[in-house]
Design a protein around this nucleic acid. Structure first.
Lengths: 338, 338
DNA sequence: AAATCTCGCGCAAACGTTTGCAATGTTAAA
DNA sequence: TTTAACATTGCAAACGTTTGCGCGAGATTT
């Protein structure tokens, strides 16, 4: 069926040159109002749509932004994607999305495919296994605006959006302390990640503020449910049982919870549990898990806003901004009340 | 920095015409092996990458496929997206994604934006509020391959991927019957959706097979947690309490579960609960919820395979295929054992 | 030795758009 | 009335690629 009408078709129909049509449609200067209106009306009536490829070819840039997620099937990351999508859609951009599956090689391949597709901006969160950033550096050398979120890259000078890990962790741990806990275990993801460092700092500072000694033997690299379950069982059986747990995510918190229940500990009477990164699961345990909420949609929206600022900004192209999205502490049944 | 090397650059460097370079790189006929190899080597060394826009402009088709999700922050749909992404990535395609938020108008806008972007195929699941399909029909008139998944459109002659709702529901209800239940409530999403009809048929047929009368007053349009909670409370209080519930999704099943527990009913001793569409939440209640698992990734993969068949297929362009992905019944604590 | 064929390659157009420059026609100033 | 200034439009090139057509040269046939 009729592939679409082009500028040339309009020109032919109106008896003028394609350049005139182009100028009329773009409201360029130096065109008589009469001609302009006639052309615009004709274009409207015939449902003219500019050919994106021609535009892209000429401008050497698409109308698309690329988004990299470490995983798609993940409450927080899909929330971020949702936020990005809404903001991008509102701003008239399409989004191209790919997941690294936490693999460095896949991440490199994605960046390469985004370069080929000439996306006009990239929003990314690092894979756990990424320690080399030259693929992103290459992107920056080609002047592709880049914004990191959550798992950011501090080596590269880009805009960033993070959640307030420090304050979130601080608030959670402080709440545990204020409800009577003073031997608080901390289950964290690998400490080379920025988020881990910040949460650890929040944990440490909350303890210090309340004059509780920080026991490094109470900090564990553990961020999956199974690991948490096993670790917790070992910990309790070994007699070094904490009176509270602060976990890096909901999965881990659930692992802790079920280990405790299996061993007959009551939550929150005997031990309190609090996690980071709220999701549906945390609302479905018994008792429900208190969590530090990371507003994923807000992170995605913020990342898109920063990216648009970079894309549109002319003068401030060199200005990078950081955005810190506030977390909130959601208290449920797995912690005691004040 | 050096934007990329083009075919013209290579031609200039090798002292030949761009057309020769093009033919050499595409292994076209009528080119001497010597020249071909020289050009390919040069291109390789200088890291030549064809300009996608120029290709798209010429072929009037991108290397991208569009994916429509009703929601992104949703276990099943993000699983599907993940499956699509993996398959697309393996086949060398990019994916463009957008969510309708269950709104008809947004869905129309997405289809329009996909048409503008000239995606070379679309994978979609209908918004709940969509009853008119002319936007998709327009897409088909422009020969854009289209595959529906999950919430399919039976009015349109396209390829489709669905989970085996009928068999899944049948198996779940039969299990409830075989473990002693005979008054089984069914909480379903709106019945105009294909999935609802199929699940309802599975429910009905399982009852019939075991000579249990189907009571239409035990079928409720109810697919959110809050609705389920309230409805279940009402139902129990009214004295018409079923001995089992079969729910359309995990949220609804959880609502039922907590309503029952609030009223002191024991699960699964007093009432059994089984849901459709497993997710993390179902693994985190107490007791854990028995669920019919929908393998989202397999659905996504299947949709992509069907789409690729349509895109690549020359002769069989008119052949539409349906793919039915098997579900499996995951038995947990919310149902009794045989 | 003349005619034909084949191979390898270049020319140029096409995809749809934008834009610098030149070429009109019109109006105002001298 | 001549000249300058200006408004409006067209021409053509450019973005990077593919491809039908034609041309020349060498190889084969008669």
């Amino acid at each position: 069926m009729s592939s679409h009408i082009t500028i040339k078709d309009i020109a032919k129909a109106m008896g003028c040159a394609p350049s005139t049509v182009s100028r009329a449609l773009n409201n360029s200067a130096n065109i008589s109002p009469a001609v302009r209106e006639a052309i615009q009306r004709y274009a409207q009536e015939h449902n003219y749509r500019p050919n994106e490829f021609a535009l892209s070819l000429r401008n050497n840039r698409s109308n698309t932004i690329g988004v990299i997620l470490p995983q798609m099937v993940h409450y927080f990351f899909s929330s971020v994607l949702s936020g990005v999508e809404k903001a991008a859609s509102a701003a008239g951009y399409n989004i191209m999305v790919a997941q690294s599956n936490e693999e460095y090689e896949k991440e490199v391949a994605i960046v390469e495919s985004f370069r080929k597709a000439k996306v006009c901006g990239v929003i990314a969160s690092l894979a756990k296994s990424t320690h080399d950033y030259s693929h992103f550096r290459r992107l920056m050398e080609e002047d592709v605006p880049l914004v990191f979120y959550d798992r950011i890259c501090t080596e590269l000078n880009t805009s960033r959006v993070v959640v307030d890990d420090y304050t979130g962790a601080f608030a959670a741990v402080e709440h545990l302390v204020e409800t009577g806990c003073n031997k608080i275990a901390f289950y964290t993801s690998p400490l080379h990640l920025e988020i881990s460092k910040n949460r650890r700092n929040g944990y440490v500072d909350a303890l210090r503020k309340h004059r509780i000694d920080v026991d490094n033997d109470m900090i564990f690299e553990c961020d999956t449910r199974m690991e948490a379950r096993n670790l917790t069982l070992d910990l309790i059986k070994s007699g070094r049982c904490p009176d509270a747990f602060f976990a890096v995510n909901a999965d881990t918190a659930a692992g802790i919870l079920y280990a405790c229940k299996d061993l007959g500990l009551r939550v929150p009477e005997d031990v309190s549990i609090c996690g980071f990164s709220d999701n549906e699961m945390a609302r479905s345990t018994e008792p429900r898990l208190s969590m530090v909420d990371q507003p994923g949609e807000a992170v995605g929206r913020g990342a898109m806003e920063l990216l648009l600022a970079k894309i549109d900004g002319d003068e401030e192209k060199l200005v990078y901004k950081n955005k810190i999205v506030k977390t909130s502490l959601i208290l449920r049944g797995s912690t005691r009340e004040k």
